[in-house]
Design a protein around this nucleic acid. Structure first.
Lengths: 341, 341
DNA sequence: TGTGTTCTCGTAAACGTTTACGGAAAAACG
DNA sequence: CGTTTTTCCGTAAACGTTTACGAGAACACA
């Protein structure tokens, strides 16, 4: 069906070795024959079989991103990742690398699927997201010595891999500062599991800022829920029923915020009017919600590009002349002030 | 690094041929040795190198979905696809197939990337979305005889491939019916390029329903824009400035609707109050918008599962005993009534 | 003319699998 | 015990590449 290098060689009456060398730009081939090979390849539109090439080279020329939908979030989706993937793809393509997204089932922790990708050598490196504070995926990859990079930090694995994260700690603190400046003293925080590192960082920033302002951290105002709409819905009433209810709530996540606002509305409390609401990670949903939610916007597409650069720089086979370097960066989150606070 | 079948054979003192046969469940291997092989494989956690296997078998055991972000839509994302991919993945996994998502750059028509996937044999079949009325991707795939399925119909390629589509024609008609029942006679339609087949179908349904109600189709009330927020924003004022302005607008797409509502607001027209608005494809954004937009909801996750079934049934190598069948289905869109009409 | 160098290409091995084939041993059967 | 069948396994080729090696031809140089 597809033409192989043998077809090409037969067609040109030269050996497959020469054809291969010509196509791969090696020096020891006559300029004339190289041109003939290139022409013939274009004419028969030959492209090398990826399996054959990978097998021989030991490299797949592709990078895998592990995407795992949140459970119980069917109609919602992950608008977060598309711009990020767009940037990642664009930068990888500049180096001739393909990006493949490996879909997981909602809720599994990717461990099995990751092992499959690694052990069957489907990609030369992987990119992980949703890093956990202790992340077995990172432990595994460092243990077997497979190249990877992460969107998000973790305590696992040491400083042996590139990572790019958002400054959730500062965003948490900024949110508190902003609310305190507007006269709030009772500020609640709705967060996901602290295993998720961004939840941990957010809460750390929140706490630190409260103390800085001389406000005691009240455990009753901190609630943990699933990182989806149902989670925000379920947990928000809990903090509202505390003895001294909050006048402001910071949500760690847009989906939780939307669920939380729904719960508030059912309790007759109007966000932006009766209570201030801030969301840490802004998504388009925040903009269109009513009231439009104040939040912190990440620059996802540039982050994708940057993480691709960092990943490539960390792999000797892909790195430029200066050799492999491990880069770790934390990017700021930009406050987008809207109507909810 | 990763253990090969040779390591396994050496460790067990048997030939690689026997190891392979044992692992692949062939009959001509002793039950005892099979067990020993299986145990050793688990112990050394061996898994077959995908490149080697693909090369020999001529099959990759993976299906590619071509995902292409819309241009100028960076912060928006494609919430549409995640649930669909989740369903697709789930069903493919049941047959031991991997789903890989091939990212394209925004705006290119995938033709080049599709050729790469096909010619380098990265997947055994591909799934396309955003089918066009005349779709060169479909022409190409049928021409080279590469298995595929589409989310969406097309005039290209005949009835030779499985396809699953939504009934945009009926949704367009239903929207008109609903608006007419509420007394509207001047109903505008904002649509993308008619190359996009769902735009074509929608408009056909819209026209047919208007005629059925004895309402003349007014070209001034039909406008075409880019299928994103900017498109809706740019084109909506156009229909509002017609001599006899509409009292209702049907948007083909949620992003266009949001842009359109923004434009309406700037003209001092309140959707849901001064004008009725209906969106054909409902997404979470419609639910959270204010006013909440009436729209038609697709069942994306089941659609993903179904299309996976249909694709597998169409490929002899994967099909069950009854052999390959081409299935084409059109699924209904369910009206979700909200506040905008 | 003899020797060394450079240019160009063919040969063949290797990557890790799967599988057709054949053969030795065991089992079945007379 | 001889013959046939069955069971099980090893051998080797094949999938499509890349690349180390070597060899022939052309060329330069003394």
């Amino acid at each position: 069906m597809a033409s192989s290098i043998h077809d090409l060689a037969r067609h040109l009456n030269i050996s497959i070795g020469t054809v291969s060398r010509a196509l791969n730009g090696r020096a020891d081939v006559n300029a004339d024959t190289r041109q003939r090979v290139l022409d013939a390849a274009a004419k028969l539109n030959y492209s090398p079989n990826q399996s054959g090439r990978s097998l021989r080279r030991g490299t797949t020329h592709s990078i895998a991103f592990m995407l795992q939908p949140h459970p119980g979030d069917q109609q919602y989706g992950e608008p977060f990742f598309i711009p990020f993937l767009t940037g990642l793809q664009a930068k990888l393509a500049e180096s001739g690398l393909d990006l493949i997204v490996v879909m997981g089932a909602p809720g599994d922790y990717q461990q099995e699927r990751l092992r499959r990708v690694v052990e069957t050598r489907r990609a030369d490196a992987v990119v992980l997201a949703y890093t956990r504070r202790e992340d077995e995926r990172i432990d595994y990859l460092t243990r077997v010595g497979f190249p990877f990079a992460t969107l998000g930090r973790s305590r696992s694995g040491g400083k042996t891999y590139p990572s790019l994260d958002l400054d959730f700690e500062k965003a948490g603190a900024d949110a508190v500062d902003r609310l305190v400046a507007r006269g709030h003293r009772r500020i609640a925080a709705i967060r996901p599991s602290l295993n998720l590192n961004f939840g941990y960082l957010f809460l750390a920033g929140y706490r630190k800022a409260l103390r800085r302002h001389g406000i005691e951290v009240d455990p009753e105002l901190i609630a943990k829920g699933f990182i989806n709409e149902a989670g925000g819905d379920a947990v928000t009433p809990q903090v509202m029923r505390s003895k001294d209810p909050p006048t402001a709530i910071i949500f760690n996540n847009d989906a939780m915020a939307l669920g939380g606002c729904k719960a508030l509305a059912e309790m007759g409390i109007k966000p932006g009017h009766d209570i201030a609401v801030i969301v840490i990670v802004d998504t388009p949903l925040c903009r269109y919600f009513s009231p439009a939610l104040t939040g912190f916007r990440p620059r996802l597409e540039p982050m994708g590009r940057r993480l691709a650069e960092m990943l490539l720089a960390s792999i000797p086979a892909f790195a430029g002349p200066e050799g492999a370097r491990i880069i770790r960066e934390v990017w700021p989150l930009e406050l987008i002030a809207r109507d909810s606070d």
